[in-house]
Amino acid sequence: MRIATVGDNCIDYYENLHTGYPGGNPVNVAVYLKRLGVEASYIGFVGNDDYGKILTEALSQKGVDISHVSVKEGSTAVTQVELVNGERVFGEYDEGVMADFMLTEDDLHFLSEHDLIVSGIWGKIEGRLPELKSLGNLIAFDFATKLEDPIKEAAIPYVDYAFFAAEEETDDLLHFMVTEKAKGPKVVIVTLGENGSIAYDGDFHRFGIVPCEVRDSMGAGDSYIAGFLKAVIEGHPIPYAMEQGARNSSVTLSYVGAW
């Protein structure tokens, strides 16, 4: 099994801790997949600054394939984060060189060699999804809390595993999941934080949480995605995949920083 993640990266800088950690949805998912024993690649832009070096060296140390990470003149993306009672509170975001991210033909060929491609709402590849889909790739996409974003409408017809985030189950949310699945995905999954998760593949499935001491919620959703995807690609049923997502998330919740 070989999975590629594509798009945004950043340094999550915790002002109250005076510390920065490598992060970004696709970056995190790649690291968590490696933690689970899956071969993972990451494609994105980093700046030719110290943060770019920190990010690429950290990914390399984790065993993620960074052969298609491009170093560009400029700054690596930075997200300001504050930790309040274990919950992350996002501040300013400087996109840096990722503002100009785009896939090359060589990147597309590289991606075609993977079993699954993972990106998200800030990944800047929604316009290339039709092409990637035509190459036969399975595609997972994290829409986060952006249930009505225009990018969602552009991307979702080409997505196999569509991930969203919300706070609690409601009738409107269930209706939304049914509506979105009808647009193309095999499965629509919504993570609900401490309320567990729901998945819809024609039937609704629910799973709670794996109890743990929460030190930092950064990366919890990305960990869920990694655990879920590994399980479904291996052929396991959706309820088992949801459990594996929750178990992987509980590991990440127990320490500070995404990884």
Rank of each mutant, 00 (worst) to 15 (best):
R2D: 14
I3F: 08
T5E: 10
T5G: 13
V6Y: 08
N9D: 07
N9T: 08
I11M: 10
Y13R: 06
E15P: 00
H18T: 05
G20Y: 01
G23R: 06
N28G: 06
V29K: 05
E39T: 05
A40Q: 14
A40F: 03
S41A: 15
A58G: 12
S60H: 04
D65P: 03
D65G: 06
S67M: 04
K72I: 10
E73D: 15
G74A: 06
V78M: 12
V78F: 05
T79R: 00
T79E: 06
Q80W: 10
Q80F: 09
E82K: 15
L83W: 11
G86Q: 09
R88Q: 08
D94I: 02
E95H: 12
G96L: 02
V97C: 08
A99S: 14
F101I: 14
D106M: 03
L108N: 03
F110P: 09
L111S: 05
E113I: 00
H114D: 09
V118L: 04
G120C: 13
G123C: 09
G123A: 12
G123Q: 13
E126V: 14
G127E: 12
L132I: 15
L132P: 06
L135G: 04
G136K: 08
G136H: 09
D142P: 15
F143H: 13
T145C: 06
K152F: 11
E153I: 02
E153G: 02
A155I: 06
P157Y: 02
V159Q: 10
F163C: 08
A165S: 15
A166W: 05
A166P: 00
E167G: 07
D172L: 04
L173F: 03
L173M: 08
L174E: 09
T179N: 11
E180D: 07
E180Q: 08
K183G: 04
G184N: 09
P185T: 14
P185D: 13
P185H: 14
P185G: 14
V187D: 07
I189R: 01
G193M: 07
A199Y: 13
Y200C: 13
D201H: 06
D203P: 00
H205Q: 11
F207Y: 15
F207D: 05
I209T: 13
V210P: 01
P211S: 12
R215E: 00
R215V: 00
M218K: 02
M218R: 10
D222Y: 05
F228E: 08
K230V: 09
G235A: 04
H236L: 13
Y240S: 03
M242E: 07
M242S: 10
E243C: 01
Q244N: 10
G245A: 07
G245F: 01
R247Q: 09
R247T: 07
N248E: 11
S249R: 03
S249A: 15
T252A: 02
Y255F: 04
A258Y: 03
